[in-house]
């Protein structure tokens, strides 16, 4: 996908009723980077009863005005759908009534994810139609399908907990969202210019979407400073520890827990060569 393709997708999105919410900032998620984020999501345990979302500071969130992530290659993502519009309104209709539905897992062919601006959002108690006066600080998220009419909305509640409904697992889309917000700010994510066919395209992109960058994986991994524990058999290689999620205990008497992503790092004796066997992503 080149800069012109991203412009075309954005122009298509701008014809829909969520146009006003599209942030200017746009990034193209390269295929490799997306695979990495999906691998992060796969590593999250799914049998949770609640999931703790990181704060904006914890993930070094740099998108206070929101960001639109366009995926170079669309892929299928499972969502847990818990509410719908009450009646057929069409994409230009006015949806003011929603209804809860029995949680169902539905597939979406995902083209992009939009993060909005963090704001006090009104909450609706399950089973009611109206918004209540209670409000929650949240960043609205919108999953946009390859068919731009197919939109699924959700929220990222920085520093808050989402409760997984009884009998359900953490949805794949929530695990992916959690990984996405973590990956957008972590140090293995590198912003590079978007591929373009020529100077004309570069100028067009510069004029119409100057902020557009592509996300790719930074080469190499960071080196661990920590001393390894004494080994019975000294290692002959250094090796890359893949990125992983840890459950971190925190809070008063460590009664709370949250998932924390650890970037990949290099482990092993510094004077030994790096074992560079390639990691194969399962997709």
């Amino acid at each position: 996908m080149t800069g012109d393709d991203v412009l075309a997708i954005r122009k298509q999105w701008e014809q829909y009723n969520y146009a006003d919410y599209l942030p200017e900032a746009t990034v193209l998620a390269s295929h490799d980077w997306t695979l990495y984020v999906r691998a992060m999501a796969q590593a999250i345990p799914r049998d949770l009863t609640e999931v703790h979302y990181p704060t904006e500071a914890e993930v070094r969130w740099a998108w206070t005005e929101g960001v639109a992530v366009v995926f170079d290659q669309p892929f299928d993502l499972e969502h847990l759908i818990i509410s719908r519009d009450k009646s057929e309104v069409g994409v230009f209709g006015i949806s003011t009534k929603v209804e809860d539905v029995a949680p169902t897992i539905e597939l979406q062919q995902l083209q992009g994810v939009v993060f909005g601006i963090g704001q006090m959002m009104r909450a609706r108690v399950a089973g009611s139609e109206e918004k209540t006066t209670e409000s929650i600080y949240a960043i609205p998220t919108l999953f946009i399908g390859t068919d731009p009419e197919d939109i699924i909305s959700g929220t990222w509640i920085p520093g808050g907990d989402s409760h997984v409904m009884h009998g359900q697992q953490l949805s794949e889309s929530s695990a992916f969202q959690l990984s996405l917000v973590t990956a957008l700010g972590h140090r293995l994510t590198k912003e590079v210019p978007v591929p373009s066919a020529g100077r004309g395209e570069r100028r067009r992109v510069q004029r119409e979407l100057p902020s557009l960058r592509m996300l790719s994986l930074a080469g190499g991994a960071s080196v661990s400073e920590r001393e390894g524990s004494p080994q019975r058999h000294p290692h002959q290689f250094r090796w890359i520890v893949r990125g992983h999620w840890h459950t971190v205990r925190h809070g008063p008497r460590k009664t709370l827990s949250r998932l924390q992503w650890y970037d990949p790092f290099v482990k092993g004796p510094e004077d030994k060569p790096l074992d560079e066997r390639r990691t194969v992503w399962r997709t």
Partner: peptide, 19 residues
């Protein structure tokens, strides 16, 4: 754009799909 919460006002995991 509003969060769905349970009776104890805990946000629920899941999404809203347009019709």
């Amino acid at each position: 754009w509003w969060a769905l919460v349970d009776k104890g006002a805990h946000p629920l995991d899941g999404g809203h799909r347009g019709t």
